[in-house]
Amino acid sequence: MKQLVFWLMVGLLRLLSVLPYGWVARAGGALGALLYRIPSRRKRIVLVNLNLCFPEKSDADRHVLGRAHFRHVLRSYLERGVQWFGSHRAIERLVQLESHIDLDDPDAPPTIFMGFHFVAIEVGCMLYSTRFPVTALYTPMSDKRLCALAARQRGRFGASMMLRSNSARTVVAQLRTGQSVMLAADMDFGVDNSVFAPFFGVPACTLTSVSRLARLGRARVVPFVTEVLPDYRGYKMTIFEPLKDFPSGDDATDATRMNAFLEQEIERLPDQYYWVHRRFKNRPAGMPSVY
């Protein structure tokens, strides 16, 4: 039965990849709005996160934001059809690229492209890989077949996909040879190799891996964000200027700066950040669980 469900899902994604993008996006948004009406664990997680991060908003405003987020999340699931199975040309048609650095600079230093879990993060990474060599770190999924499929399709344009676990030594070696690495470090992966840094004023368990890899690999850290454009016009990937004086030598300071940058982008795109993730899963000693 699991195998049948897997192949049905693959078939559906392949079908969605050839349908007009606007149709798929509208269908995903409608499905998300419908599912928001139904009580669920994910809806509760979203509202807990929004309550913690936006205490100044009314309950009604947080529900409006939560509903808009559900629309984006379900859209992103259906839009994986074109993201995972669309052609090189289809990806380039859908994604605009704006870079504040010269991506063609042959003398550029080793670079860590630091992404964040907005709903369109995958398609931005794929667009980059159609133009430039890159190693992309990823976290394994619980379903091994789905994980293998995702890694294969995400890397089909040339990105070298690497499991996040036990990858530090290889990443450092690649950075020292001038290769670029893409990763996201804004989720709660446990207290090991993490510090508690403020995120909208709430202590959030924040990975220190970006600082350590940048220090050991002698690399600059360049943030990027991929957003969903309005009116079903696709996506826009923005590559920002490198973070100045990063790493600083203090992991807590660096984690705070990372979170502060992310907060600015969330303020701009509040419904597109991945609020369904338990961002505050781990808490400082003595603080109760929020989920």
Score class of each variant (00 low, 15 high):
Gln3His: 07
Leu4Gly: 06
Leu4Cys: 14
Val5Glu: 05
Val5Asn: 00
Phe6Ser: 07
Trp7Gln: 07
Trp7Glu: 03
Leu8Gln: 06
Val10Lys: 11
Leu12Pro: 13
Gly28His: 02
Ala30Pro: 02
Leu34Gly: 03
Arg37Ile: 01
Pro39Ala: 00
Ser40Ile: 00
Arg41Asn: 01
Arg42His: 02
Lys43Leu: 02
Arg44Gln: 13
Ile45Phe: 12
Ile45Val: 13
Asn49Phe: 01
Asp61Ala: 15
Leu65Asp: 10
Leu65Pro: 15
Arg71Ile: 02
Tyr77Thr: 00
Arg80Gly: 09
Arg80Pro: 05
Ala90Met: 14
Arg93Leu: 09
Ser99Gln: 10
Asp102Ile: 07
Asp104Phe: 11
Pro109Tyr: 10
Met114Ala: 15
Phe116Arg: 11
Phe118Asp: 10
Gly124Ile: 00
Pro140Asn: 02
Lys144Phe: 04
Leu146Tyr: 02
Ala148Cys: 00
Ala148Thr: 12
Ala151Cys: 09
Ala151Phe: 07
Ala159Val: 02
Leu163Ser: 09
Ser165Trp: 11
Asn166Gly: 12
Thr170Lys: 14
Gln174Arg: 13
Val181Leu: 04
Met182Ile: 04
Met187Gln: 15
Phe189Thr: 11
Ala197Pro: 08
Phe199Arg: 01
Gly201Leu: 09
Val202Glu: 01
Val202Ile: 09
Leu207Val: 09
Arg212Ile: 00
Arg212Glu: 04
Leu213Met: 09
Gly217Lys: 01
Val222Trp: 10
Thr226Ser: 07
Leu229Lys: 15
Asp231Gly: 07
Lys236Asp: 03
Met237Phe: 03
Pro242Tyr: 02
Pro242Gln: 03
Lys244Asn: 04
Lys244Trp: 07
Asp245Cys: 05
Phe246Ser: 07
Pro247Asn: 01
Asp251Pro: 09
Ala252Asn: 02
Ala255Phe: 12
Thr256Cys: 05
Met258Asp: 12
Ile266Cys: 15
Ile266Thr: 10
Ile266Asp: 12
Glu267Arg: 11
Arg268Asp: 08
Gln272Met: 09
Val276Lys: 00
Val276Glu: 04
Arg279Trp: 06
Lys281Tyr: 10
Lys281His: 14
Pro284His: 08
Gly286Leu: 03
Met287Ile: 14
Ser289Arg: 06
Ser289His: 09
Ser289Pro: 03
